[in-house]
């Protein structure tokens, strides 16, 4: 690996970015703009009023709420949770058809047309961020008119989840390539990061020491969700040490 890196540097070849996200929990207001932006960007279908009342919604990103103290002296903390893009992902080894794997850029990839719908991955995910499509996706009008052509519609019978907006990563790379330049920090903005009014979320290459996300990770406030499980997530949560 090190040998390859040295060789690449010598040739001036492009580095393989290692994508990561930092979420500042002290900035998050729980407004759910990211939830809306994600559903809109990634063609995540709506469940309808009746199904939603039974909790049968599908969200690639959700806001977990934590309450501290006794009413009325209550403090609420919010935590946006999406696929943690684990380096040691529990979902990957249980897939019998290799439909989910970690690619060279550290993304936990889900290939829909390889998936046969065993749902082992969703059951093995400690963050419960994988969703099985029991039904073909539907959108209430006029949402059916705003589907994103850059993102495939997932059929029934497969598992889907947050991709770190892989299509936007791809688009940013192609744009940079067309302009004959290297990918710069901030070129890739997943929908949740882009829409966050509090700028609580930062996305980028964590191996680039000058990137915003690398600076956030080095701030001494960062931690991971269910860190003790050893899943090594690529999503880092920043909060004031108690």
């Amino acid at each position: 690996m090190a040998e390859q890196t040295a060789e690449q540097t010598e040739q001036g070849a492009e580095r393989t970015p290692q994508w990561a996200m930092a979420i500042d929990l002290d900035r998050c207001t729980g407004c759910e703009a990211c939830v809306v932006a994600c559903a809109s960007e990634n063609n995540v279908p709506t469940a309808g009023e009746d199904q939603a009342a039974m909790g049968r919604t599908k969200h690639w990103i959700r806001i977990d709420r934590y309450y501290e103290g006794e009413f009325p002296d209550i403090k609420v903390k919010y935590r946006p949770v999406m696929c943690q893009q684990c380096d040691e992902a529990p979902c990957e080894p249980v897939c019998p058809v290799n439909a989910t794997y970690q690619n060279a850029e550290g993304l936990n990839v889900q290939i829909y047309n390889r998936c046969i719908g065993t749902r082992y991955c969703a059951n093995n995910c400690p963050y419960t961020v994988r969703f099985f499509n029991w039904f073909a996706p539907e959108w209430a009008e006029p949402l059916n008119l705003q589907l994103n052509p850059d993102v495939s519609i997932r059929p029934s019978g497969v598992v889907e989840k947050c991709t770190f907006c892989a299509h936007k990563i791809k688009r940013a790379k192609l744009d940079a390539d067309a302009q004959g330049r290297e990918l710069a920090d901030g070129d890739v903005q997943p929908a949740c990061v882009q829409s966050c009014p509090a700028e609580a979320m930062v996305f980028g290459d964590m191996t680039d020491p000058d990137s915003k996300v690398a600076r956030q990770l080095g701030s001494g406030r960062s931690g991971q969700l269910l860190e003790s499980l050893g899943t090594k997530p690529r999503v880092f949560y920043l909060e004031k040490a108690d």
């Binding site: 794997y101 690619n103 060279a104 993304l107 990839v109 290939i111 829909y112 047309n113 390889r114 993102v151 495939s152 991709t163 892989a166 299509h167 791809k170």
Partner: peptide, 8 residues
Amino acid sequence: DDCLACHY
């Protein structure tokens, strides 16, 4: 030849 190059 990463699957993600085309399937997303």
